[in-house]
Amino acid sequence: MLALILKLTVSFFAVMNPLGNIPIFITLTNGYSVSEKRRTARKAAIISFIILTVFLVLGNLIFSAFGITIHAFRVAGGILIFGIAYNLLHAKNSRAQTLHEGEQEDAKQQDDISITPLALPILAGPGTIATVMAHTSTHSVSSLLTVLISFTLILAITFVLFYYSTSIISKLGQNGLNVISRLMGLILAVMAIQMIAEGVHGLFPHM
């Protein structure tokens, strides 16, 4: 069981890419206070855990109930990621970063990045959900527990890295953030196209 946990942990690490997501987190939370960054990191990790746990237990039932496939989910997730990438490429700020002080709280409620895009689709996105469902075909207690432990470990690592991202910001400076913003936008755009391509290929295998 330990060997399987290790194997799955490596798989989830590759899919979630916590190290690669640090610049994305830094860019998306640019202008946040330290407490806001850490609250966002904690909320994103918790929401991601809930999403993955729900799909771990009820994934096949949810997809069957709505008549959707993981391939369609990939296309939708890719489109959403591409929209995020477009904003990053143009260094656009969210309303929470540009409104007056009295309006910021309402804007944060409307633009809660801990839910979208951090939890879904960056951390608990189509790729991660597909990985969860691919390893729970037997639905045995041991397999479910193994997958649960594996993605929980990676989410914990991601939370720690996001939690201490402020020290990374202080070393990069604003110019560094601008460069990272556009670079991450480009990378996310490529990821989005790849995700959409995989989804389209799954929906139309004979194309």
Rank of each mutant, 00 (worst) to 15 (best):
R42M: 09
K43M: 02
A44T: 08
A44Q: 02
A44H: 00
A45G: 03
I46W: 04
S48F: 11
S48C: 01
F49V: 03
I50P: 07
I50K: 00
L52S: 00
T53V: 10
F55D: 11
F55C: 02
L58R: 02
L58A: 14
L58N: 06
N60P: 12
F63Q: 05
F63K: 04
F63I: 06
S64Y: 10
A65K: 01
F66S: 09
F66W: 07
G67S: 15
I68V: 12
I70Q: 14
I70T: 14
H71E: 12
R74K: 12
R74Y: 15
V75Q: 04
G77Y: 05
L80N: 11
L80R: 03
L80V: 13
F82K: 08
I84Y: 01
A85K: 08
A85G: 12
Y86F: 14
Y86R: 11
Y86M: 15
N87K: 12
L88K: 07
L89K: 12
K92T: 12
N93E: 15
S94H: 13
S94Y: 09
R95E: 15
A96M: 14
T98R: 11
L99Q: 09
L99P: 03
E101F: 15
E101N: 09
G102N: 14
G102Q: 13
K108V: 07
K108Q: 00
Q109H: 14
D111F: 02
D112F: 10
I113L: 04
I113M: 09
P117E: 10
L118F: 02
L118V: 08
L118G: 06
A119Q: 03
P121V: 10
P121E: 15
L123D: 04
A124T: 02
G127R: 00
G127E: 10
T128H: 01
A130I: 10
A130N: 07
A130R: 00
T131M: 12
M133C: 09
M133H: 03
M133G: 06
A134Y: 05
A134P: 13
T136D: 11
T136S: 10
S137H: 00
V141K: 05
V141M: 13
S142C: 02
L144N: 04
L144Y: 05
L145R: 05
T146V: 06
V147D: 07
L148R: 03
L148D: 08
I149H: 01
S150I: 01
F151N: 07
T152L: 10
L153C: 06
L153M: 08
L153Q: 00
L153P: 01
L155V: 05
A156C: 07
T158M: 06
F159I: 05
F159R: 07
F159W: 13
V160Y: 04
V160P: 05
L161K: 01
Y164P: 01
T166D: 13
T166I: 07
S167R: 03
